[in-house]
Design a binder for these strands. Sequence first.
DNA 1: CTTTTTAGATGATGACCGTCATCGTATTGC
DNA 2: GCAATACGATGACGGTCATCATCTAAAAAG
Lengths: 202, 202
Amino acid sequence: MRVTKAQAEQNRAHIVATAARLFRERGYDGVGVADLMAAAGFTHGGFYKHFRSKADLMAEASASGLSQTAARTEGLDPAEFVERYVSREHRDGRGDGCTIAALGGDAARQPADIKTEFAAGIENLLTALQPQSDTPGDADQRAARTMVIDMLAHSVGAVMLSRACPDGSPLADEILDACRKEILASLAHHNSEQPAVRSPET
Amino acid sequence: MRVTKAQAEQNRAHIVATAARLFRERGYDGVGVADLMAAAGFTHGGFYKHFRSKADLMAEASASGLSQTAARTEGLDPAEFVERYVSREHRDGRGDGCTIAALGGDAARQPADIKTEFAAGIENLLTALQPQSDTPGDADQRAARTMVIDMLAHSVGAVMLSRACPDGSPLADEILDACRKEILASLAHHNSEQPAVRSPET
DNA sequence: CTTTTTAGATGATGACCGTCATCGTATTGC
DNA sequence: GCAATACGATGACGGTCATCATCTAAAAAG
């Protein structure tokens, strides 16, 4: 059952995409190689024709998921990012959501290669959120970067904390609402003081 | 090899404490029953004399770890909490640190009983951080609670994001420093506007 | 067209895991 | 003290897991 070289490449990409989603939903340890391949429409045998090990796929799937999040964030207004990120839809859609929020806790226990992918993914997200098109002074650049880093950690923390609470519990929603309100207020506050990161509308 | 009833109770507590630490270090799936019992100084056989299942222990160990964090936070100034929580020491000491930051990401995929323990643990932490000794108006109470919820999510996000980066990487430290600075600034800002949560010193 | 290569299927292997059966021994209740 | 009880040790069980060997058939190379 040989297939076209192009088809094989496409199958490989499909396996990576499927893995990225399943890992986000169930965690790295919650998905077996056989599970994964079945979900992608294959049997477990062909796996090692594409990847050297499960750990290899874990790193590649993480990178894929992270770059997808960065791509979807590109050109998004910070406030708009927060509205979408710190939302019930995002919290309840682990599989289709941000890889950092879904697997950040697991990444901390993974080997260096996965952590490196996460660092690169975070760096990309920061760049996507911080439009440095207008090149102001170095001090402003650093202040803007600090602010974006803080906003990202803040948003990630809100989603993760809300997800740790029982589904549909008042506390889960309260956390989300409280954080969204405070993050947006913080954004507005920074904008009024030194508009290093500014909304296009204002 | 029977032991005193008091000794057995003590052994059980020791197993729970060991489990809480190991789970924080390696995650729920990263610790086997045999591993765990060996780390506590026993063989795997006696496990089911103490717990009905591994899932049962997971819930109990989570509750134990969470209440420990709440107890250690009791009476702590919010700013002091942030200084300790958003620190390199805490980030690098998963096993001895906060259960929310270590297992919050995993809890999201666990059954309802564990999520319920997390919600209760979070609620306890909020109470420990929000001294409602002076009973002001309801509006102030709610505003203070919102602020504490936000501060906790913010701190948790900072530690988790930093942990997802390679050990000793500049980004890991940058995240921690940026967030600590911003969280403390936010605290100061709230204190100056409406001192619902106030430092004892000021 | 012939030969070589390789994506994917099938099946097996050894390690690990949660759980339970059994047993010894020391404590507890009488 | 005697009998009943139960903590903990030893060992075994199904099941799952990552990985590899083998086979196939079709695509690629010549």
